[in-house]
Design a protein around this nucleic acid. Structure first.
Lengths: 328, 328
DNA sequence: CTGAAAGCGCTTACAG
DNA sequence: CTGAAAGCGCTTACAG
């Protein structure tokens, strides 16, 4: 904490006021005469005084910290999300305590960590939460919001894209283009995002009498690339491939290209997320744009309006299709 | 902080011991009889007691938090770095308070933020620091380490790749391949990384009588893409393009491809960083791999061994060249 | 091994 | 508008 921890007391001594007054000067809205305020501020600056947020939090019960947990390191989508969160939370006066989970599931350990530091809310992006962990958080009255995930079993807020309907629209689009031999490359199958996208997609096509070929991926580029490569090596040449996210679609796209299949002439490729790379000229991936900014805003909204306790809320946002070079 | 803040006092009451004893049970190495420890632990678990890190920090002067500041949102390199830092710092018992800077320079505001929360050290990856800010930090005895940057003027530690020599080796490699018409696409020119890579690269070639064409980029894909596109539209067809980082090289690569130039047959393309994408089949970018993990380890080492005050240290790591599909 | 007490740096009623 | 005092939840000498 430094060798030179100037305290409010030090400032008070020099400014010849009480420590309470120094505190008031640094408390927005507290009543201090203009004259006193100026004198104190001057001394504070000279001494390089910085109020101690820890001590303040201890008494106000407000830490202004929110915990953010992430897992996926490969998907740039989450990097963009992280940037947006820290930026927007800062604007609201919150800091973010960041945790990167290696495990599939957020462990008790990481949550304890958040609890110890008294974060006021927790945002979990792409990791899983056990109901036991959620219970503990509820017990401590810390609101949790799942971002880009949801879980009916869990008693927590959730903000995500309406994956099912988005996938349905993509299916309709593909069907309208005359595609009949269609592949879906999944993400991690235990994620709601992948499941919902698959459900919306296959259901629509099933109604039309089309059985979608499902390749079980894991949201990584490599797996999707290998799966698709193997698939076309078997002599198959689908009309369309829909990847559970952009990275997945990109993997499939590269495999198709490598296999000499021309996109979109022979095969249409669609992704999901609209990460920056998708718009790069070399790819020009058509995709479903998640309303990332709106999603972040909604999440923060949910966290800050935690007062009204009408149970966990689920917000589903629409997003929109972006037509680029991999679709016709 | 929750509606149910069980304190050590609460536990003490139920376990019929003093609050001091409860504290000892949660302090590694403190002397408590096995019998008491068990009883206290049992009660603590029943009550869901969680020591308050804020209160502890207030008295121990140890927050176990380090501040991490980042700026570049587009470069996946930093996403990987962030993952590595949180993972490794956690292993050492540290949490990371994350700040995403929008400004080119880290502002006083963000630093104050770190100071308020009493972080024990600060890591700055790709943002700039003013000497005024560094001075303030030194005044508070908080060690700062620049990661992947360095600045002679600034009194702070620094860990980075030996960019100059790496670029020199790349230049030698290219020269050895017979390249004579060579382009370097810079990153942001006010970064030490871009400057050093440029210096090492051009100096070597200058010695050989070759004047490198320098295209001034900004470390983004788009700029590099446009620059290269414009360059070749002017009728030029270089033997080799070296990008200040992978993203930059990828932008150039795509522009070359779009311009109908075959890589590596006509033009060799080399990047710097070895981000995951560079190994994707569609790109197969040859690049200089930064020893990312080592760099992170060294940084943490520097921060935790902050006791010996023999002035700021600069650590330069080597890294190595990775040959893929864009070089011969 | 254990308890009573002081103190970390703040905020916030309570008086004046 | 301002000061004295209590208290937030801990740790840590100091006694015993």
């Amino acid at each position: 904490m430094g060798k030179n921890p100037v305290s409010a007391m030090d400032v008070a001594r020099v400014a010849k006021v009480s420590q309470s007054t120094v505190s008031r000067v640094f408390t927005p809205g507290a009543s201090v005469s203009e004259k006193t305020r100026k004198r104190v501020m001057k001394v504070a600056e000279e001494l390089n005084y910085q109020p101690n947020a820890l001590a303040r939090s201890l008494i106000t019960k407000k830490t202004n910290m929110v915990g953010l947990a992430m897992k996926d390191i490969q998907n740039p989508f989450y990097h963009e999300v992280l940037g947006l969160f820290t930026k927007k939370l800062k604007a609201k006066g919150y800091s973010v305590l960041f945790v990167y989970t290696e495990n599939e599931e957020i462990q008790q350990e990481e949550i304890n960590h958040f609890l110890e530091y008294n974060v006021e809310a927790i945002i979990v992006t792409d990791a899983l939460l056990s109901s036991k962990v959620v219970a503990k958080l509820q017990n401590n009255a810390i609101p949790v919001t799942l971002f880009n995930r949801y879980d009916k079993e869990l008693q927590c807020n959730s903000v995500c894209c309406d994956n099912r309907n988005a996938a349905k629209e993509i299916a309709a689009y593909l069907y309208g283009k005359g595609c009949r031999d269609i592949v879906f490359v999944t993400g991690k199958i235990n994620t709601s995002t992948s499941r919902d996208r698959q459900k919306g997609f296959t259901e629509y096509l099933q109604d039309k009498g089309i059985e979608v070929t499902v390749l079980e991926g894991d949201y990584t580029y490599e797996t999707s690339f290998q799966l698709t490569k193997k698939f076309i090596a078997g002599g198959r040449k689908p009309d369309a491939v829909f990847g559970a996210n952009d990275i997945t679609a990109l993997g499939a796209l590269d495999a198709l290209k490598e296999g000499g299949i021309s996109v979109p002439a022979e095969t249409i490729v669609i992704g999901f997320d609209d990460i920056k790379m998708s718009s790069w000229p070399n790819y020009g991936l058509s995709t479903w744009a998640q309303p990332m900014e709106e999603m972040v805003d909604e999440t923060i909204q949910l966290l800050t309006a935690k007062q009204e306790n009408d149970g966990p809320q689920t917000v589903k946002l629409k997003g929109h299709f972006i037509h680029r070079k991999t679709s016709t």
